[in-house]
Each structure stands twice: as C-alpha cells, then as structure tokens.
C-alpha cells in the first residue's frame, strides 16, 4: 500500500514539476549555446541588439530559476494541503492505509522532488557557466585552491563533497517536514487554514534560524578566541564543526516536526 501511495504522490507532484524543470534546463542550454558560449570564444562579438536579447534571456533564466526553486516548495505544499486537509482529504483519509503510511509517502515523494530540484537547479547553473578553460584551470590548481580555503591536503575534495551531499539530503527532508508541520498546525485554525499555515511556516523558520544563529554565533566567538593556538587545521575544524552542527540541528528538527505532524494528524484532524 505504501508503494501505491508513493506512486500517486509522485504522479501528482510531477505533473507541474517536470515541466518547470525541463524549461529551466532548456533555457540554460539555449543561454549557453546562443550567448555565453559565443562570448567566451570571442568577447567582442556581442552587438548592441545582441546585448539586449541576452539581457532578456538572462532575465528569463532567472525567472525560471526562481520558479523552479519556489515552485517546487509551493507544489509540494499545495499537494500536501489539498490531498490531506481539503475536500480530497475525505478520500485520502478513508483509504485503508495508516496515517503513518500517508505521512511517509508524502515525506518520501516531497523530499525526493526537493533533491531532484536542487540537483537540476545546480545543473542548470553549471550548464550555463562552465566552460573548458575553467575546468582546465581548476584541474591545475585544485590542491592549491583547497589549501587557500584553509583545508589540509589530507582532507581532499571527496570528503568535502560527501559532507555537502549528506547535508543536502538532510536539508531536503528538513525543508519538506517544515512545510508539512506548518500546514498541519495551520489547518487547526479552521477558519483561516491557509493563512495559519503561512504564519506557522514563517514562525517556525524564524525560530529555527534564531536558534541556529545564536548557537552559531556563540560557537564562532569561542572558535575565534581559540584561533591563535589552532594553527593550519583551524579552518577545517571550523568547517567540520559547523557542518556537524547544521546536520544535527536539521535531524533533530526533522524528527520533532515529523512526530508533531503525525500526532496532530492522528488526534486533531478536522476536515471542514
């Protein structure tokens, strides 16, 4: 049953998201071949009218970029709300499946789309700006670059990339759970469900960012005070600890949000 739920949730999300992301990639590719690529080969090739068209194209790309990023959040949020708390909820909540299965299905489908979105957005940027000389330059100086950033040679790019991937997966899930818990709290305000959800979302995000910046600041101050004795590995230590802190914070909030959502869905469901 969980598999079927996930299938239908993916179907619903993909309806809009596939289209948005294909358009983003196409625009990035066009921008690359029509403008950026030519400009790299020959910086003086751009005429006045060409510059105007290029500006328009860049604006189009930026708009699509924003649409993809915010559209993904919005589509996930709307699907969750509609499927569980609007009239559609009368069908969803009377399917012979548990609330846990409903929520897991929503979490899996939402998080996976969130990750796909991040990957495709990054890919579109790479498509647009990466060109061969840049890669060549980087290949030559990559160890130096790492050292410049303050990492000891022993760390290597592999570990750094791994750390970012872990953070990336966890923050996708955390983002989705923040949306879900906000909507589930919001629908308790039976006359202002949508407003309630939006207010909850910003309230929760604010609290989380206050917590993380307060702890982060306290941590930076203590780190700076120790800096003199820290030596070479200092930046690396700082990076590592910040990373671990971010991951722990996200895991804890995700688990707490999941439990709250599940409990409220179980005990306080009230379809209008």
């Amino acid at each position: 049953m969980l598999g079927k739920l996930i299938k239908y949730d993916f179907k619903a999300l993909s309806r809009y998201l596939i289209l948005i992301h294909i358009m983003l990639l196409i625009t990035a590719a066009l921008g690359r071949f029509l403008f950026i690529g030519k400009l790299v080969d020959n910086p003086n090739s751009l005429s006045d009218s060409g510059a105007i068209i290029m500006t328009i194209a860049i604006m189009l790309y930026v708009i699509l970029f924003m649409t993809a990023v915010f559209g993904t959040l919005l589509v996930i949020a709307i699907h969750f709300y509609k499927n569980l708390y609007s009239d559609e909820g009368y069908l969803t909540h009377t399917l012979p499946v548990s609330r846990t299965q409903l929520l897991i299905s929503k979490t899996v489908s939402g998080s996976v789309w969130m990750m796909i979105d991040m990957i495709l957005v990054i890919l579109s940027v790479l498509v647009l700006v990466i060109y061969k000389p840049m890669i060549r330059e980087f290949a030559v100086h990559k160890d130096e670059a790492l050292r410049e950033m303050g990492f000891p040679d022993s760390v290597g790019y592999g570990k750094i990339i791994m750390a970012f991937i872990v953070l990336f997966v966890i923050s996708a899930i955390a983002n989705v759970m923040t949306i879900y818990v906000s909507i589930t709290i919001g629908q308790l305000f039976s006359n202002h469900r949508v407003l309630g959800s939006i207010v909850s979302y910003f309230g929760i995000s604010t609290i989380i960012s206050i917590i993380s910046s307060v702890i982060g600041a306290a941590y930076s101050v203590s780190a700076v005070m120790k800096a003199e004795t820290a030596g070479d590995a200092y930046v690396y230590q700082f990076f590592l600890k910040t990373m671990i802190f971010a991951i722990i914070l996200q895991v804890v909030t995700t688990v707490v949000f999941y439990i709250i959502t599940q409990l409220l869905m179980q005990k306080k469901l009230n379809l209008s």
């Binding site: 909820g89 009368y90 909540h93 009377t94 179980q266 005990k267 306080k268 469901l269 009230n270 379809l271």
Partner: peptide, 9 residues
C-alpha cells in the same frame, strides 16, 4: 459519520 470513518477522534 465522521467519527465512524476515523475523520474525527
């Protein structure tokens, strides 16, 4: 009816 259908507790 909602109580019977597990839509309310």
């Amino acid at each position: 009816i909602k109580l019977i259908n597990d839509l309310l507790v």
